[in-house]
Amino acid sequence: MSVARPTRTRKDPAQPKPRRKTAKTKRSASTGHRTDLLESMLRIRHFEERCVELYSAAKIRGFVHLYIGEEAVAVGVNGALTAGDAVVSTYREHGHALARGITSDAVMAEMYGRTTGCSGGRGGSMHLFDASRRFYGGNAIVAGGLPLAAGLALADRMRGRTDVTCCFFGDGAFAEGEFHETANLAALWKLPLLLVCENNRYAMGTALERHEAQTDLAMRAASYGMVAWSVDGMDVEVVEEAARRAVEGIRAGTGPHFLELRTYRFRAHSMYDPDRYRDKSEIEQWRSRDPIRLLRDRMRENGELRDKDVEAIEQRITTEIDHAVEAAERAPEEPVENLLHHVTSSSAEAVS
Rank of each mutant, 00 (worst) to 15 (best):
T215N: 15
R8G: 08
R220D: 12
V88W: 00
A140F: 06
A175Y: 04
G120L: 13
A153V: 05
V73W: 08
I283P: 05
S288K: 11
I317T: 12
P335L: 10
G253D: 13
L188M: 06
A14C: 11
L185F: 10
E311P: 02
G144R: 03
A149C: 10
E241M: 13
P291M: 09
P16D: 13
A350Y: 13
R157I: 08
E326T: 13
S89L: 01
E93C: 01
T254C: 06
Y55E: 15
R27M: 07
W229P: 07
R122D: 00
T254D: 09
E333P: 01
A149M: 02
Q285R: 14
R43K: 04
V239Y: 13
K24M: 05
A155K: 05
R134N: 01
A140M: 09
V164L: 00
E304Y: 10
S56K: 15
K280Y: 05
L98S: 01
V238M: 11
G205P: 00
A331H: 03
E209N: 06
E241Y: 01
G124K: 01
R265E: 10
A72S: 15
G76R: 01
N78W: 07
A109G: 15
V88K: 00
P256V: 05
A80K: 06
E53K: 12
Y264M: 09
D279H: 14
G137V: 00
E53Q: 14
R298N: 08
E198R: 08
R159Y: 06
M1Q: 09
A80S: 09
E71N: 08
R50L: 02
T318P: 01
R133L: 14
V238K: 13
E209G: 04
